[in-house]
Design a protein around this nucleic acid. Sequence first.
DNA 1: TCCGCGGATGTGAACGTACACATCCGCTTT
DNA 2: AAAGCGGATGTGTACGTTCACATCCGCGGA
Lengths: 340, 340
Amino acid sequence: MNSQSSSSRAPNIRDVARAAGVSHQTVSRVLNDSPNLRPETRQKVLDVIAAMSYRPNQAARALVTSRSHTIGVLVATRAAAYGVQTILYEIEDAARYAGYRLAIATSSSDDESVSEALAQLIGQAAEAVVVVAPQSRVFDALARTAPLHIPFVMLDSSRRDAGHSISVDQFEGARLATAHLIDLGHRHIVHLAGPQDWIEAEARMQGFLREVGDHELYVDPPLLGDWTAESGYRVGRELVKRVDFTAVFCSNDLIALGLLHALREAEVRVPEDVSVVGFDDVPEAAHFSPPLTTIRQDFAEVGRRAIGLLLAELGSGGARHTEAIPAQLVVRATTAPPRL
Amino acid sequence: MNSQSSSSRAPNIRDVARAAGVSHQTVSRVLNDSPNLRPETRQKVLDVIAAMSYRPNQAARALVTSRSHTIGVLVATRAAAYGVQTILYEIEDAARYAGYRLAIATSSSDDESVSEALAQLIGQAAEAVVVVAPQSRVFDALARTAPLHIPFVMLDSSRRDAGHSISVDQFEGARLATAHLIDLGHRHIVHLAGPQDWIEAEARMQGFLREVGDHELYVDPPLLGDWTAESGYRVGRELVKRVDFTAVFCSNDLIALGLLHALREAEVRVPEDVSVVGFDDVPEAAHFSPPLTTIRQDFAEVGRRAIGLLLAELGSGGARHTEAIPAQLVVRATTAPPRL
DNA sequence: TCCGCGGATGTGAACGTACACATCCGCTTT
DNA sequence: AAAGCGGATGTGTACGTTCACATCCGCGGA
């Protein structure tokens, strides 16, 4: 009774069938939880499967069913690590729970790279694709690519003019941040924006401009960062040469961190001289110096909804939420009324 | 000449062959870059392939060749986002360059979860596995699992007693950090360690203890954090009640951030009253308050070597580096000689 | 008693590709 | 001129699974 002969070939369904004294089809039925099976037969087969440590061949399965049980994830950025990673973990969880595997392809934001990554996913027969691509050019590249014949969803994109899109409400989040500053009494607020081609950055800027405009405040041309603390620091060093503002709304927490660094270097006190608001609420924001007032995004919810949407479309019974996820203001220690 | 009939079935190799007036085997030869083909024949086939937008079926290919061209990545943690993400990106790049795809499975650190994730990867017929699992229990769980018959490599693990392991030299890195503090004149250094079951945390602690021991300095029992800024803050608040130390070596940058927060709150000046050293050199460390002296790890190199090792073992010509990757001291503004 | 029915199981084929081998052809070599 | 050779191409089959359909069996109702 050698349960594991040292053969060169892995056991297949017929080997199992032979050992169990049934037909290969019966084994298949066991594997696929067919209802019409005598309990003893099922158990017998299961025992043999365990004894031979048989594993169904996914390739063969995929070939005959033309279903890969794979969801592709296209990550079109290396920046914004916190959000992307959180979303990724959540997607993996939700997908696995629904019986799907994940295939990941990364790319830069140029057309060629995006469609290459997409081709890779399609080549793997992904049944659906999640695009974590916060840049509008990625969005465009995707639109330009031959139409996808599979369900897909774009994350972190507020544009809803094609396919599906899920994101935290960036616009409202930015308004929340700006309104907070205005409520405190600030009248001249600078916006330190993210890269112009990022949809989120654009939405946050629009939210800021709208809120400032609604209060008929002076609108300063937004300054540009690239999401990194380094860029926040760089822009911050220029900014401190001016003395005409009392608050800064940063497009993300890292930029805010860099800005805080520049302000501290220039001996500008926060929040006494200048108030600062960030965006994202990364876990570290609570420990910045001073702890950062910011806008919280529920990235995990984004990931969950993405998979829910795709599963619904694949007919596997996922839920379908189309409304935007609200952002939330978290007040800490970088905001205070301006000095008189 | 309808290049794309609205048929229900995707074109297969025989459809292409028929349209090109050749045999299916000739098409296969074109797909696999066989040398013995008349250039005109090859071109003709390529034209037809493009016209029909034919894509080879990976499942069929995998079935017949029993090669999946997939490398599995087992991520057994949700913490330590920066390192993991950097490694992941680099692995994806290197793998793609070598013609491999990535399958990702995440897990917690308990046995069941790890072997479940591993089973998932094996089920996908991964040809090799990269285990990003810095916890010793994951290591153990893996060892306890039925022996893997495929090449695998563990990252961020300094234990080399089974399989392959690639990591930055944590032990030396910790010595570097500690030596820096001792050189400055510190005689009572506290170590704020990471979770005990993490191999890296253990190695860093050992490095610290060795260096301190070599100088016959007083050794304080290390305090424990969980990698997060929050834990650094929490421990830091207890720590400031004591006044018997002049320097703290933190097991990672986030813990250091939390500690800096606690110190600031207690009006302990850094580096005048207390020096602080971190570990990792996350991009934000340069903008902490004050900018953090820390140990830099080349995570990208870790990822590259991992794939190189696996490819070498798979016979695809990757390079084989077995030596540890050196860590590097980055001196910024949180370290200074102790006050007299 | 016989028919019909439905649960349990078996049989054959198909999925789309690569591999082993066969064939064909034109050229060189003897 | 015949044999040998190698490049170019074609033929048949295996890979491991699921699907469609066939078969078998025992039981209840006419």
